[in-house]
Nucleic acid binder design. Sequence first.
DNA 1: GCAATAATTTGATCCAGATCAAGGCAGAAC
DNA 2: GTTCTGCCTTGATCTGGATCAAATTATTGC
Lengths: 192, 192
Amino acid sequence: MEFVGSVVTGVATLSQTMEDGRRQMVGLLLPSDFVGRPGREYAAFNVEATTDVTLCKFARKPFEKLLNDMPHLRERMLEMALDELDAAREWMLLLGRKTAREKIASLLMIIAKRQNTLKPIENVEELKFELSLTREAMADYLGLTLETVSRQINALKKDGVIELERKRHVFVKDITRLLNETGDDADGGYFE
Amino acid sequence: MEFVGSVVTGVATLSQTMEDGRRQMVGLLLPSDFVGRPGREYAAFNVEATTDVTLCKFARKPFEKLLNDMPHLRERMLEMALDELDAAREWMLLLGRKTAREKIASLLMIIAKRQNTLKPIENVEELKFELSLTREAMADYLGLTLETVSRQINALKKDGVIELERKRHVFVKDITRLLNETGDDADGGYFE
DNA sequence: GCAATAATTTGATCCAGATCAAGGCAGAAC
DNA sequence: GTTCTGCCTTGATCTGGATCAAATTATTGC
């Protein structure tokens, strides 16, 4: 853990593994996300790139010094940490209480939302995006098996909620329809 | 959300509920834990006391001003937020990948550890503590049903891992034995 | 192009934990 | 004491998602 930084392009994941190989992703690192933890020597989680990733990197020690000199930076860091905490807690609801289908729909919504930061998602009628995760990575993120992920994605496709092109390109004609599949309150979380 | 503060005595929980009533706890608030979020108007989660709780309360606005005047305080807040984030991520592994028995054992370890802050838990041979949560609250915390919680607690008792007194008092003769049931690496997380 | 390899789908079967349904028990109110 | 009321346990059954086992389809390297 000699560096901290932030993702510029690409997708990386943050995960934990148990001794017997069970694996849970605990964070998705998309462009603009911060990587690493100031004030701690060791890395608590594994970071892995799933696509080629460009990082904007700082040596940790000088960065910590910078934090002391620039109160604004620490304020920003606190804000980011609290936002991540909220996101982690949303994810806890998903892992603990949602069905497989709701989990998939929620993940698609999150990726869709992150790839479309230009305008609020409720004003977008249709949406096309790239799924830069393998079925296995999605499974590890959602607490499912890759077979279940595959089956549920195809079920959503069969039901006309999404369309697929070459396995990794998703096309959503009606976002409200997908949102209804997430199990979330219509006005909570995704529309902000 | 007019106040922020910190728990002095008692136990409270932080939870989220879905429209159809499914519920997931996302945080356990024990003495010394911080409640509320500076810099945000609304509360994203429900806070509920499970026992009588004493809070040390601050009005949010003045507290935010205090944050600006005292850089140390903001540093401390950042540290606390990052620790909570780590804890939330640990919890994600539990929710996504652990078995019911492992979930119960992990919860017992966490409560045991929090009630015994005097010496590192690996030096304690036996331990007695109060379980201030109902079976239902534990279920909501672990992403299980209350029946499964009851069955698994009694299974751990039958297997001699724990002893029970009046349903809510737990007695652990051999902490290593309980730790082995959590599914966690022997040296990770609980021993710090 | 043509392997070789990785990712995905699909089918059959299984099982941990959910669900449904009574009971049991302890503390509180009377 | 007795009746409530809120927990907790226990049993029977069901089921969503896991597991095991092949195909099938993309992607990569040559």
